[in-house]
Simulated scan of single mutants.
Amino acid sequence: MAAVNVAEIAEAVKAAITAALDGWAEAFDADEVPGVTRGDTPGADTPQRHATVHVLRTDLNAARRASGEVSIPVLSLRVVSHAESIANVREIRRRVCGALEDVALALPSGGTAGPFVFDLAEDEDDDDTGWFGVDHFTFA
């Protein structure tokens, strides 16, 4: 089985989300968000509306991990939507789900990632940067 390239998958996810946001907001890796401390451009202004993409390898069956049984890893995606209002966070989340749910994305190296299956939504909340909401997906 070929190694999973999570960076390549993250790029495809960011492109799909950014297209769905249609210039209204943009998707980034967490360390790419302009203005974020320890990010690529810490001195820049952080965009009010954006989504951060986090792709992770997971095995959701803890018993199987301990058994030594060989399994195909599940991949998980966490998308954190950020905006200046709860209404705009909800709009970003709606567009993210529309771009990803039950969709398989083509990868530059060939093959696909997905289809993405919606797993869990966390309530919107606020912090010192504004409002945010988190959506979780699984895929293979």
Rank of each mutant, 00 (worst) to 15 (best):
S81G: 06
E69K: 09
R95L: 12
D102A: 15
I17W: 04
E32Y: 00
V74W: 00
G130K: 07
V70H: 07
V134H: 05
T18K: 10
D29F: 02
R64I: 15
F118Q: 05
A12L: 09
L120I: 10
D59P: 01
T41P: 00
A30Q: 14
G98Y: 00
D125K: 11
D45K: 14
T18I: 10
S71I: 04
G23E: 04
H82G: 02
R90E: 14
P73W: 00
T138F: 12
A63H: 01
L77V: 09
R90G: 15
T37Y: 05
T129V: 10
A83E: 09
D119S: 13
G111N: 08
V80M: 09
T138S: 12
T37A: 15
G68W: 01
A99H: 05
A27D: 06
A27F: 00
L60K: 08
I17T: 03
D119R: 13
D119Y: 10
P47H: 12
I17K: 11
S76I: 04
L120N: 12
T37P: 08
Q48G: 15
R93C: 03
T58W: 11
S71V: 14
D125R: 14
R94V: 04
C97E: 10
V103I: 13
Q48V: 12
S67Q: 00
R90M: 12
A44P: 01
K14N: 11
R57F: 00
R64W: 03
I9C: 11
P47F: 02
A87E: 15
A44E: 14
T112I: 12
E101N: 15
D22H: 08
P115I: 04
D59F: 01
G39D: 13
P34K: 03
F132K: 07
A106P: 08
R90P: 00
G133F: 10
E91R: 15
T46M: 15
A104S: 13
R49H: 13
E32D: 14
V103F: 02
N61P: 00
L107S: 07
L56Q: 15
V117L: 14
A27Q: 02
A44K: 11
R38Y: 14
A44W: 04
V74P: 02
V36G: 06
A113Y: 11
D31W: 06
A10R: 10
E124C: 11
S71L: 09
D119G: 04
A99I: 08
A16H: 04
G23I: 10
A19W: 02
A63P: 00
W131L: 03
L105P: 06
G111P: 10
V13I: 13
L100G: 06
A20V: 02
G39Y: 03
A16L: 03
E124Y: 07
P115D: 11
A16I: 04
R94C: 00
E8T: 02
G98V: 02
